[in-house]
Design a binder for these strands. Structure first.
Lengths: 335, 335
DNA sequence: CTGTTAGCGCGTTCAC
DNA sequence: GTGAACGCGCTAACAG
């Protein structure tokens, strides 16, 4: 009834050779006489034979697929990374199993386990907090892991990112140079090292260099969504903020619009620098000044690093920092 | 050297049972005495045994993974669908292999083939044009396929979408009711049935109902990116368009901004209705009036449909149309 | 250059 | 309720 799947064995019989030979031509092994190679190729074509990757995976212990754990594909920051990852993966003949985690620790562990059960050759993890449980899973398995756009103070697995501390410091400093004294710092939870250890430190450092006192009221922790922008702006404007650095573009758009909707002039009365330079930053009016992170490249380099790890090549440095710069568009004053 | 992976056989030996029994408890087969089940479970836990999904796939001919072909994850329209797909997939214990195609016919065929080689249990395809080659591949394989957010005039595979013709017709009609005579219609190539057969027909139908002549100059085919919005607006404004229906949100934002940047009042002097109600439509000022498509649901329902197909359940209707409506936000006049 | 022979780790009859 | 044995489709030595 079912159109029986044709196997390497059928090809072998039909071509009058052994399955080993068929396997060789399929895998591009040079030790095959051109004549027989052609003969086999013809049969493969005629029978429309397609090697079963699952069987191949079982026998070779390689699946040529890597797992990608992403908080939310719908977030432009992450999807940009994912695009870079997939492109390089394709280039190296890997496929991607994509799984959304919502940065939920339980889901992350769960997903990691099913990825490992599926014998992925490597894992790329996005998400800002590496819990102990996750770290344990990482090191327990022999599967290479790379963090994309995520810092890991522990530095045990590969990671690709930018220098978030300096980037934030530079942003704040430029805002200070524009005359701002009360600059808000808005990010997700400080429990995440990327925020609590790097961005916040950069923020504090810039203030300190300028002799400005750190004011807790100007620092808010918020989720990264458009809709909370309203509330966040309300909060920081109450305490007199004249500028803000924001760790996420969607949130920054929300804050910008909240300001505009109140009739506030941007950047004259309120300045804003966001962090990801996703497409969104060009779509607003005025356009968002931003830290320019090479999003696509972070993903691409992560995947490239992972291929090396999977290939057991020697790596000089597992933690890669990519360059960034500040781009003043419409939400900062000209200097 | 390598920490040897522990297999079902190790568990069996350690628990003093046969591997068949271990297999049974792992797969929840009820024919196991509670005592031995517990014994096995304990060993599994102690040894931290994790069933090898690849071996399982070979033996059972089911991989519990489905392939998802997407034009570009970075596009909010598609990533929203993808999110719905992944959530439902997870719910049904499936994983997703995500592959970007850029709507490139060659890549699509290529990717489909590697997905089939990997023995995915099903495929969800996004992309607006089903080439003959693709259609041939679809029907040649016994793997169920569902089109998400894509129409297929042929109707041979499953598909989930909305009534694009009526949606466009309604949009245009509402624009006509607002007094517009010159309404531009902007979409990707008319070679894609979704545009050439449905949206365009809806557009024409609305004009006809209102006794307005069809004017080719108002119809433009364009790629779906923000940056071409400028040129598109230039083009339609030259021929005196006072309104436009646009098939993609990013492009619509580009057109809106082009208008605003020229000092044109929206919606007073120029009205705009876009098609996807992605997050973007809330982020612009004014906010974009739009056709509301249940993006997440289209993805979710597609995956649900696919599970039924994979499960060989009887389906009454392979082509599912989800409801839509027009939402007037800021780029259309109040009526 | 090519064929033989073992497994890879697990699901699944079929007896006991 | 449980175990033995075979097979899924292919890779990887090892001979020849």
């Amino acid at each position: 009834m079912d159109k029986q799947t044709i196997t390497i064995y059928d090809v072998a019989r039909e071509a009058g050779v052994s399955m080993a030979t068929v396997s060789r031509v399929v895998n591009g092994n040079p030790n095959v006489k051109p004549t027989t190679r052609k003969k086999v190729l013809d049969v493969i074509d005629r029978l429309d034979y397609r090697p079963n990757a699952v069987a191949r995976g079982l026998a070779s212990k390689k699946t040529t697929t890597v797992g990608v754990i992403i908080p939310d594909v719908t977030n432009l920051y992450f999807s940009s990374l994912a695009r870079g990852i997939d492109d390089i993966a394709t280039m190296y003949k890997y496929n991607i199993i994509l799984a959304n985690s919502d940065e939920n620790e339980h889901k992350e562990v769960q997903v990691l386990n099913t990825l490992l059960a599926k014998q992925v050759d490597g894992v790329i993890f996005m998400g800002n907090k590496i819990t102990e449980e996750l770290r344990a899973e990482f090191s327990r398995s022999r599967t290479p892991v790379v963090l994309a756009g995520t810092v890991d103070p522990d530095g045990q697995v590969g990671s690709v990112n930018i220098d978030y501390k300096t980037a934030t410091e530079d942003s704040v400093t430029s805002l200070i140079e524009n005359g701002n004294k009360k600059i808000a710092f808005i990010s997700e939870s400080h429990d995440e090292p990327i925020n609590g250890m790097y961005r916040l430190e950069g923020y504090k450092s810039a203030l300190k260099n300028a002799g400005i006192d750190y004011d807790e009221e100007l620092v808010v922790q918020s989720e990264y969504t458009y809709k909370v922008g309203e509330a966040v702006f309300e909060q920081i404007s109450k305490v007199g903020a004249t500028a803000a650095v924001v760790a996420d573009d969607e949130l920054a758009v929300g804050i910008l619009n909240a300001a505009l909707d109140r009739g506030i002039n941007v950047p004259e009365e309120f300045e804003l620098i966001t962090s990801n330079n996703s497409k969104l930053t060009d779509m607003t009016r005025p356009q968002l000044s931003t830290i320019v992170q090479p999003l696509y490249d972070i993903g691409a380099v992560s995947m490239r690093l992972l291929t090396k790890l999977m290939n057991k090549e020697e790596i000089d440095e597992k933690t890669i920092k990519l360059p960034f710069h500040i781009l003043n568009k419409g939400t900062t004053k000209e200097n």
